[in-house]
Write a protein that binds this DNA or RNA. Structure first.
Lengths: 155, 155
DNA sequence: CTGATTTACATTGTGCACAATATAATTTCC
DNA sequence: GGAAATTATATTGTGCACAATGTAAATCAG
């Protein structure tokens, strides 16, 4: 194999390692979240909602978007599904009718207790040192920041 | 914040760091791949096809699936789109009519030359040491193997 | 050899992601 | 104060992912 071959070899792409691992992790979450009646992106939304709830904050759609890096095209239908399941409520602000404020229902708040064991059970049966995950998380976050700060790619 | 709070804090989830970085990387690929008329998953398929082509192999749909961890529900429509763009051809095997064999067209083969500069341009303007990416890739692959080897999660 | 099982791929339906556009409310700038 | 620009969310359309199911061909078992 020449260098030229190597550049485009699938196994040399970090992007593919990232893509494959992300899907494998999501797949491992799936049966656990199914017990909660949540998809993986819905679970992420609920994590933000639970956090905000504890701080007495009722986030706006755009707050979720900023936190999760998702736009209204993704969030609006997702939030409507969570609303239909009575996990949260969406309401326009009286002061500014453009804004939709989100608040947990009691059912949504209660679901947190059932979710509390998800992170633990996820790792269960996996022989991975916790510190390894910590340093990986740090590296992923650091690279995310580089990408979000950087200019769009060249030419 | 109590420990109990921390467990479900969004910023403590490796899964979220992985999810966010994966989407940020894909977003950075997007304008480059658009020049090739490819989506990101289509690009991954083409990487496998180019590799196979150089080895004189015409992979089956299931070969792509095994390599990319995708099933026919994802691959069949994706491959049909690549076929419509005349980048590859799909043909049932005479010996075993269940099997669909994939071969690059000349246009598909030619696209490789245009793709050759994608990895370089992707990193352009990013201040990241190559060795950092190498060790990250290794870590991601190692964890993928752990997940793929492991039992499904408990309970 | 034939019925049962397995294999490979296709189809259907749901739920993201995301670009592009739409809509309505607020803010800004003369 | 009113036209223009901006902001926040919604809608539409395309393309994944993936579960569940279908279909036809090949293999296996008795």
């Amino acid at each position: 194999m020449t260098d030229n071959d190597q550049i485009l070899a699938l196994d040399n792409q970090i992007c593919f390692a990232l893509y494959a691992l992300n899907r494998a992790v999501t797949a491992r979450y799936r049966p656990l979240l199914e017990e909660l009646g949540l998809t993986y992106p819905q679970y992420l939304v609920m994590l933000v909602m639970w956090e905000a709830d504890r701080e007495g904050i009722k986030p706006r759609v755009s707050d979720l978007g900023a936190r999760l890096r998702l736009d209204s095209g993704t969030l609006t239908p997702l939030l409507k599904r969570l609303e239909q399941r009575d996990l949260l409520q969406r309401a326009r602000l009286a002061e500014d009718e453009r804004v939709v404020r989100l608040r947990l229902t009691n059912a949504g708040r209660a679901l947190r207790a059932k979710a509390a064991n998800v992170p633990g059970r996820l790792m269960c049966g996996l022989d991975i040192e916790p510190e390894r995950l910590l340093s990986l998380r740090q590296e992923l976050r650091s690279l995310l920041e580089v990408l979000e700060t950087a200019e769009p790619s060249e030419r």
